[in-house]
Amino acid sequence: MTWIKFALWLLGIYTLYYVALIIWDILRTNRGDTGSEKHELTFVEDIQPVKSFADEIIASGKESSVTFSGGVSLKQLFHLAREESVEYIKSVSY
């Protein structure tokens, strides 16, 4: 038996296997009864909003050394790493 014959036999067996699985799946399910009974997934969340810590600081009038900027660019991140304002674990090439 050559490699081509082996590959063709293997391809034929896989094809028959997957065709049999598709036919089995079609025979198992009734596709005609989908009108009256729908399977629908719904989520109900009973979550109450929580006041954040930042809102409490702003409302109380206390000044903090931490500012909420919403993020920094990559260049600013490297600058902060050089100033050792940001703790990093691995070495960073500049």
Rank of each mutant, 00 (worst) to 15 (best):
D33Q: 14
T42L: 01
I13G: 12
F78D: 08
L74I: 08
W24Q: 14
V92Q: 11
S36K: 13
V50Y: 01
T67N: 11
T34M: 10
S69N: 11
G61E: 00
K51H: 09
E56C: 02
V50M: 08
N30F: 00
D55I: 10
F6W: 04
I58E: 12
L10P: 02
F6V: 06
I23W: 09
A20V: 15
L41D: 06
Q76E: 02
Y17R: 07
Q76S: 02
L77Q: 11
S85W: 10
D33T: 14
K90S: 13
I23P: 08
W3K: 07
E40G: 12
L80H: 05
I4D: 11
G35C: 06
I47C: 04
T2A: 04
P49F: 05
L74V: 05
A59M: 04
A59S: 11
P49M: 11
D46T: 07
Y14F: 15
L77H: 01
E83A: 04
I13Y: 10
K51C: 08
P49D: 11
R28G: 09
S65T: 07
S91T: 01
E40I: 15
N30L: 01
I47W: 08
V72M: 03
P49K: 07
E84N: 07
I89C: 10
E40M: 09
I26E: 05
K38A: 08
S93I: 15
L77K: 00
V72K: 00
